[in-house]
Design a protein around this nucleic acid. Structure first.
Lengths: 270, 270
DNA sequence: CAAATAGTGTCTCTAAGACAATATCAC
DNA sequence: GTGATATTGTCTTAGAGACACTATTTG
């Protein structure tokens, strides 16, 4: 035992070269679309948070929020800390989607990144500007398979439109990874990370995982259905949706009011 | 542009403290059990590869194969390289199960690890001994939920029996993580990693992912069924199993011979 | 024939999908 | 009543699970 104490005292990790480690977060939120009819329910779009880089490299490009792992914290704590520096709010959920470790993914040097999907509820999210970020904005997401087999990732915020092209690479186990053919004005390999995040998010939403995190504690079944439809970019039949989620929710006894049509029961997650 | 070149030339990552990064691999294989009856099909057990540590820390304990990430390689390449140093054979598959980054998981210092599940076919796997490993052996796996809600992980090889106790921690998204209550003679947090690996492996096997990697190119449906049953520690009805995998395989036209009973069609993966 | 595995047929039950019908509010 | 959403009912079909049955080889 004395032996081991001595060993650890003498042990030095400094002989080996070490990478810098970061956490990058793909933060999702549903953005309300203005409705043309005041009696209609709110329409939503899926959006994600990007930060305009103020310094080199990729100066002026848009990048995912994230930052370096500090001693004494886990990678999840790092992700939450970096995210809170940008949004001032804790996300409703956080899910790892893997380590991105291509040696040349960052021109600054050997930097590998663990990426996360995070979800924010629909309450307004405050924004701060970070130290090396001149701007942070939520971009509407469009990620679709083209007839030629390629994927197009479009991110829009007001006049700004980012467009990236990717190819799918099926590597066993249902896990799909993407290759970037054109990164547009996205920094680093963030197009690849966003594509992986969207794939993971849609996979979860299919099984009703994570969809509750987009909503407040109490919600109507229509709102819940809207979340799934928005994320997966599909539309499902109401009757079937309600049957499938019946066991995942419970009634609160409360109802919506003054919506211009029949009130709806408010549910909560069970 | 000149501006950016200059920036990158001046940029130094050395101001920040950096962790060492490793890849640890939970390598699975099916081990043939001696059958009491020469006419019966071979019975199998799930086994995983452990290495006895020859040096400090955890001297004499058993640990997962793995090693440090080198510059110029991805974490997947690192995992394959370390695994090949131990087994001299490439695995049939490799799947990441996440980054383990608890600050004090390694007494040597700040070392974080990306864990992988890998699968080897049933052909014999050669073994080399690594530099800091005095022994490498395949341990039969038993991982079961006890009535008290805890999990027991038992690993056996001849006279050696490792026994670890864990608790389940459901952290949203169906992703379950484990807390180690008693590590037994397993080094570091490897009991936690093995529990996560088994959970991931069973999740895959349920959907017929990864089960083909345990078998040679040509196999019978009985063998395939046996793989799933062994991994998940369940038994399923033959007729139902065959219906479910029917679209995942195709006939080769060949048959087994001389097994002491009716020959079986050999299939391959489609 | 006995022992063992290989392979098929079919019944039931559940869940998913499609579609129709009714209910309730604001105006 | 009209326009909008809320909520329920039910028909059909696909798939999972259970179980019974037949087929083929070695010894």
């Amino acid at each position: 035992m004395q032996d081991e104490k001595q060993f650890l005292q003498d042990y030095s990790l400094s002989d080996y070269e070490r990478p810098s480690v970061t956490a990058d977060i793909v933060a999702f939120k549903l953005r309300r679309r203005d409705s043309e009819n005041y009696r209609q329910n709110v329409q939503t779009r899926l959006s994600l948070l990007l930060i305009r880089r103020g310094g080199h490299p990729f100066k002026g490009c848009w990048a995912l929020p994230g930052g370096f792992l500090n001693p004494g914290e886990t990678i999840e704590q790092c992700a939450l800390r970096e995210l809170e520096e940008e949004t001032a709010v804790k996300p409703a959920s956080l899910m790892s989607i893997g380590l991105f470790s291509e040696p040349n993914r960052d021109p600054r040097g050997w930097i590998i990144s663990n990426a996360f999907v995070s979800v924010f509820g629909s309450e307004e999210v405050a924004q701060r500007s970070g130290d090396d970020a001149s701007d942070a904005q939520w971009f509407d997401v469009d990620f679709t398979l083209e007839p030629d087999g390629g994927y197009v990732l479009s991110l829009r915020h007001e006049d700004t439109c980012i467009r990236a092209l990717l190819s799918e690479e099926k590597s066993r186990f249902g896990m799909t990874s993407f290759t970037v053919r054109d990164s547009g004005t996205l920094a680093f390999d963030h197009a690849k990370i966003i594509a992986a995040a969207l794939t993971a998010l849609r996979g979860c939403a299919k099984d009703f995982e994570m969809i509750f995190d987009f909503l407040p504690e109490k919600f109507t079944l229509s709102e819940l259905q809207n979340v799934q439809e928005t994320i997966m970019n599909i539309s499902v039949l109401t009757a079937n949706f309600r049957r499938k989620v019946a066991n995942l929710v419970e009634e609160t006894g409360e109802y919506t009011q003054g919506a211009g049509h029949r009130p709806a029961k408010l549910y909560r997650r069970r």
